[in-house]
């Protein structure tokens, strides 16, 4: 059995008993034949200390629950290979959002921005009896957009979002805005562009591209933002 001890430094804060957050040193026995991902090891840490708090659910990178800052970079615990991690592994909550407890952040602001882009299909035309038609090529435009899992890795790695989380939509919200703009079934392109044509909502993006670097699904919010900007220019001429 390939066991070994892994060292961790974990951000801890329980407002019920701690005056201030602190970094806790922790170590745990890991069995490399069973434990592959960081979430497997977190489960072991939690078995030792049940007060360690983090969100998790699907453990396969599709629900978006277990986003955290791992050795300085945002990612999903369930998709992070433990063998690749430099020790001590430093775990912190996602940056830029208020911490509720340990690795759990308050995501209200993140979802508020997502909701602000009207993340639903707008088509006030009469509802046909069958599906609305869309060619395979038109459908392909949604690839790289609809797969977003709302984990917030991107938005909380974006300095513009750290500075203006109340005014800048952020990469996740903008990627989703473009998902509806790009959908041939959606009829609200102009309204959507109007809403984003604002010094803050869209134009705080300075193409730093942290979002692209951290997205666990390999999506590219910067490209989507570029496309929105392009459409704004095109309709202005």
């Amino acid at each position: 059995m390939a066991t070994s001890t892994m060292q961790f430094k974990i951000y801890r804060y329980d407002p019920d008993k701690d005056n201030a957050p602190y970094m806790q040193d922790a170590s745990v026995e890991v069995d490399f034949s069973l434990d592959r991902k960081l979430l497997d090891v977190l489960t072991r840490l939690k078995a030792k200390d049940d007060s360690l708090s983090y969100r998790r659910s699907c453990r396969e990178g599709i629900c978006g629950s277990d986003a955290m800052n791992i050795n300085g970079k945002n990612g999903l615990a369930c998709l992070t290979e433990i063998k690749d991690l430099k020790q001590p592994v430093v775990l912190r909550p996602l940056p830029g959002l208020p911490v509720i407890r340990d690795l759990i952040v308050d995501m209200t602001q993140f979802f508020k921005q997502y909701h602000s882009i009207k993340p639903y299909l707008i088509n006030e035309g009469p509802r046909p009896e069958r599906e609305r038609l869309q060619s395979p090529e038109e459908r392909e435009e949604l690839n790289g957009l609809y797969e977003c899992i709302l984990c917030a890795c991107c938005s909380t790695s974006c300095p513009s979002f750290w500075w203006n989380p109340d005014k800048f939509v952020g990469p996740a919200g903008l990627l989703n805005a473009y998902r509806f703009i790009a959908d041939t079934r959606d009829q609200a392109t102009n309204e959507r562009l109007d809403d984003l044509e604002d010094p803050y909502r869209l134009f705080r993006c300075h193409t730093i591209m942290n979002c692209v670097d951290v997205c666990p699904k390999g999506l590219n919010p910067t490209r989507a933002i570029g496309k929105i900007k392009e459409m704004m220019v095109r309709r202005a001429i």
Partner: peptide
Amino acid sequence: EHFGMPFDRT
């Protein structure tokens, strides 16, 4: 589909 589900297409 009318709600916006991005089904693949024929």
